[in-house]
């Protein structure tokens, strides 16, 4: 799904976006989480993150695994430090009024699959 479709489905407001090709950016998979270690459990690149957290560590976490787009749910506005770090790292930020569950549901229903979970392993 193209980023422009995601934006329209979630009726997002733009907080920060940089490059011209933004609307054509292909969003292959997404994850929704409010805990950063849960986000770090995903290891595939090019992911969209939906979250209710707005501090700069959200952007830092995104950087670590190559997430290019962050959408803040429930109409949350990120801190100024969050925006400036996203600017520095060229990670796009948007906001939607929808709650996390509904935002994830809308994207899932319209064809964005979950991240591949090569994740569930037990530790002995």
């Amino acid at each position: 799904m193209k980023l422009k479709t995601v934006k329209s489905l979630l009726n997002t407001e733009t907080i920060f976006e940089a490059s011209d090709e933004k609307d054509e950016l292909e969003v292959k998979n997404a994850c929704g989480a409010d805990l950063m270690s849960d986000v770090l459990a995903f290891s595939n690149e090019k992911t969209l993150l939906l979250t209710g957290l707005t501090n700069p560590q959200v952007v830092r976490t995104a950087e670590m695994i190559g997430i290019q787009v962050i959408i803040f749910v429930r109409g949350k506005e990120p801190q100024i430090e969050t925006i400036s770090l996203a600017n520095q790292l060229n990670i796009f930020l948007y906001s939607t009024d929808k709650p996390l569950f509904e935002a994830c549901g809308l994207l899932y229903k319209n064809g964005i699959g979950p991240e591949e979970m090569n994740y569930i392993e037990t530790f002995k």
Binding site: M36, A41, T61, F123
Partner: peptide
């Protein structure tokens, strides 16, 4: 509240 303390830190480290 800042999004940490999921109890997955060292678990993630060990996994990778």
């Amino acid at each position: 509240e800042m999004g940490f303390g999921a109890g997955m830190g060292l678990v993630n480290v060990k996994r990778y």
